[in-house]
Computed example of a mutant assay.
Amino acid sequence: MTAPAVNTTDRRLTPATDRVALESLRGLLERPAYTAGTPARLGVAVADLCREIGGARDRQTNFGADLTVIEERGDWSFVQAALDGYCGWIESRFLGRDLPAITHRVSTPATHIYPEANLKLREIGSLSMGARVSVTETQGKFSRLASGGWVPSMHLATHAASDPGALAESLMGTPYLWGGNSRWGIDCSGLAQASLIGAGIACPGDSDMQRDTFPVVEGPYQRGDLLFWPGHVAMALDAGRMIHATAFVMGVIIEDIETAIARIDAGGDGPFLGARRPDRTDHAAFP
Rank of each mutant, 00 (worst) to 15 (best):
P220D: 09
W76R: 03
H155L: 00
A16C: 10
D206V: 14
G74F: 09
T213I: 01
D238P: 09
A146N: 11
D48P: 07
V44I: 15
E137G: 07
S162F: 03
A161E: 11
I261F: 08
T17R: 09
N118D: 15
A65I: 04
N118K: 09
G190W: 08
L171C: 06
R51N: 09
R93K: 14
L29I: 06
D75W: 03
Y221C: 09
I243M: 11
S162L: 12
T246W: 01
D225H: 07
A260P: 00
W184C: 02
T9S: 14
P32N: 05
M242A: 13
I197L: 08
D279I: 03
S189D: 04
A36T: 06
G37R: 05
N118I: 12
G240E: 15
G219M: 08
A5Q: 15
W150F: 15
G88P: 14
R51E: 15
G64F: 04
T158Q: 13
I53G: 07
T61H: 07
R59Y: 12
L273N: 02
F228P: 07
V233G: 09
D208W: 10
A157G: 03
H104E: 05
G37E: 02
E72R: 12
A239N: 12
M1S: 08
P215V: 10
R105H: 07
K141P: 01
T213R: 15
A131K: 00
G125P: 14
T17Y: 10
I124R: 14
R73K: 14
M242Y: 09
G200W: 08
R59S: 13
Y176L: 03
L171A: 02
E258T: 12
W76P: 00
R277L: 11
P230D: 12
G64Q: 02
P152G: 11
A199Y: 01
R183P: 00
A160Q: 04
A36C: 02
L167M: 05
L156G: 01
F94A: 13
D208G: 06
A202Q: 05
S153N: 12
G96I: 00
R183N: 14
K141C: 10
